[in-house]
Design a binder for these strands. Structure first.
Length: 169
DNA sequence: ATCTTGATTGTTCAA
DNA sequence: TTGAACAATCAAGAT
């Protein structure tokens, strides 16, 4: 459906529950974890909290892919700017300014990133499955998959240029 | 000296 | 479905 166009905080002022997003924005990856580690996205603070050897980080969204490039440009034209927020704001503004067709290449990359993420997750899950609380599982024998890279990349030329620039409704 | 914050949007996980 | 966290970045502030 439509989970808001941008802001996650749909409530204006219900409880302090959304303070994490609305007030402090979302910049506390470690902070939030440290603040209330035993609450949200952690399985259990039991021994499962061990460090993950190859923790697959979430795939960068199209916006982040675009941001990476945008940062270079931004810093290049604004070498004096050192605040990350500046690039964020500028990037966000530009992002909204871009049409769907322009964002298409970035989204395409994001899709690819996601594919890799799934792959990493597969390996990660596999490892977790092999994980015995016993010792460290450092034997990476899963990479012995031969796989002749023949196909992969080819065709897939879908011209979906029906994108109408619908800026703002 | 180490850690946290700030700011953006998209995506992914969990209930 | 919806909320809430987190993905990169990098310097400055806080402890």
């Amino acid at each position: 459906m439509r989970p808001s166009k941008g802001r996650a905080a749909a409530n204006k002022g219900s409880k302090e529950a959304l303070k994490a997003v609305d007030d402090r924005k979302v910049g506390k990856r470690k902070a939030v974890v440290e603040a209330d580690k035993s609450s949200k996205r952690k399985p259990k603070k039991e021994k499962s909290a061990k460090k993950d050897p190859n923790k697959p980080k979430r795939p960068p969204s199209a916006f982040f892919v675009f941001l990476e490039e945008f940062r270079k440009t931004f810093k290049r034209e604004n070498p004096n700017v050192k605040a990350v927020s500046a690039v964020g704001k500028a990037g966000g503004a530009k992002w909204k300014s871009m049409s769907k067709s322009e964002k298409a290449p970035y989204e395409a990359k994001a899709v690819k990133k996601k594919s890799e993420y799934e792959k990493l997750m597969n390996a990660y899950n596999k490892k977790q499955d092999s994980m015995d609380d016993d010792g460290d599982e450092e034997s990476e024998r899963s990479k012995s998959e031969v796989h002749d890279e023949d196909d992969e990349e080819s065709g897939q030329e879908d011209e979906e240029e029906d994108e109408e620039e619908d800026e703002e409704d």
